[in-house]
């Protein structure tokens, strides 16, 4: 081979690798599912050579990016309302499930010993219940010796899906919470102290005597924090676990949820964990780059099928099987280009 052909071959190889990189799937949005998306992307790249470029810039950012059409898919912890989806021409579907867990720091109370319900937690965060030996807490925990320590509520200061799920749950359980604070990814808290991120809330709660906070399940589990059990809608006490999160997702009425607009907090069912949430994916109904969306859907289909074990390793919960079938049917019926479905069905 002459020098020139070598250079040409090398240039061609570079050109090919560039064009291979061009088919990488691009997405942006929620930070909550980022660890599992990254893990899936890594495995998928090894398997197929197709990479995923996911920017975890927050749900708000994800919605803005998909509306600006700078990414193939957006990701959000808060589902968009059906009318907003219609207006923007977007399709939305759930991808992964997680749970939020209340954690406490009370002397003499071990993980899982304390039982709380939504109304009590709402009253604590409103500042109406100020001591751990309050009658409302004692009534739920007749056998527990609760001290008279002042309660220090700790909240997430950064806007997050965790905040949204927690405040949405409390809004459903307490009308006063709903009218004075409301549900959002950031709210105006009347009392307590704000810490940044799961790690900040976890740290603040562990450091402060009498504190109560709320973190993603993985954080509570990995840091062996004193989590609380919750009374769910069926008036049963439940432990936070993969099973109870999945129960909440399975008991939810997805078939009647237009555009999958369903918030998984406070679901029916004896085993349902009440602060469960799904993270959503947003794509265009009629994408301008159908091939890119097709690649993205292929990746999601693979993640539904083979990603469960990886999700469990990171303490996320895969969707229940009937829901996956429903999502795939939606892909077939709703995402199209020139009258043909964008997803190949495989």
């Amino acid at each position: 081979m002459t020098m020139i052909t070598r250079i040409l071959v090398a240039a061609a190889a570079v050109g090919m690798s560039l064009s291979a990189a061009a088919v990488d799937i691009s997405g942006a949005g929620a930070t909550f599912p980022y660890p599992i998306y990254a893990k899936w992307a890594d495995a998928y790249k090894k398997l197929t050579g197709v990479g995923l470029n996911y920017q975890s810039i927050g749900s708000g950012g994800g919605i803005k990016q998909i509306k600006a059409k700078t990414v193939t898919f957006g990701a959000s912890d808060m589902p968009l309302k059906p009318e907003d989806l219609k207006e923007a021409g977007l399709v939305q579907f759930p991808m992964i499930i997680g749970g939020v867990v209340p954690v406490v720091n009370i002397k003499g109370v071990a993980p899982g010993q304390l039982l709380l319900d939504g109304a009590t937690i709402a009253a604590i965060y409103l500042g109406d219940i100020a001591k751990w030996d309050d009658p409302a807490i004692k009534k739920l925990n007749p056998k527990l010796a609760l001290p008279g320590t002042a309660i220090a509520p700790v909240y997430r200061s950064d806007g997050s899906g965790t905040n949204f799920l927690f405040t949405d749950y409390l809004s459903k359980e307490s009308s006063k919470f709903k009218s004075t604070i409301g549900a959002n990814s950031s709210v105006q808290w009347p009392a307590g102290i704000g810490a940044k991120g799961n790690e900040g809330v976890a740290n603040m709660t562990t450091q402060t005597d009498g504190a109560i906070g709320y973190v993603e399940y993985a954080y509570a589990k990995q840091n062996k924090m004193a989590y609380a059990q919750l009374v769910n809608k069926a008036s049963k006490a439940v432990e936070p676990s993969t099973e109870s999160f999945q129960a909440a997702a399975a008991n939810a009425d997805w078939t009647h949820a237009e555009g999958y607009y369903l918030i998984l907090t406070d679901q029916e069912g004896a085993k349902s964990w009440p602060i469960t949430g799904a993270s959503f994916i947003l794509v265009y109904k009629e994408p301008s780059d159908a091939a890119a969306v097709g690649e993205a859907l292929k990746f999601f289909a693979w993640a539904y099928k083979d990603g469960g074990a990886m999700a469990a390793e990171l303490d996320y919960v895969p969707l229940p099987a009937p829901l996956i079938a429903q999502v795939k049917a939606t892909w077939m019926s709703s995402i199209s280009s020139g009258g043909h479905p964008v997803w190949s069905g495989k």
């Binding site: 930070t31 708000g60 808060m78 200061s157 950064d158 806007g159 899906g161 990814s185 950031s186 704000g194």
Partner: peptide, 18 residues
Amino acid sequence: APGTTISSSIANEFTEAV
């Protein structure tokens, strides 16, 4: 008491501001 500053408010809330 806890408070906030201009730059920390932006850092906390901008990503999820809808």
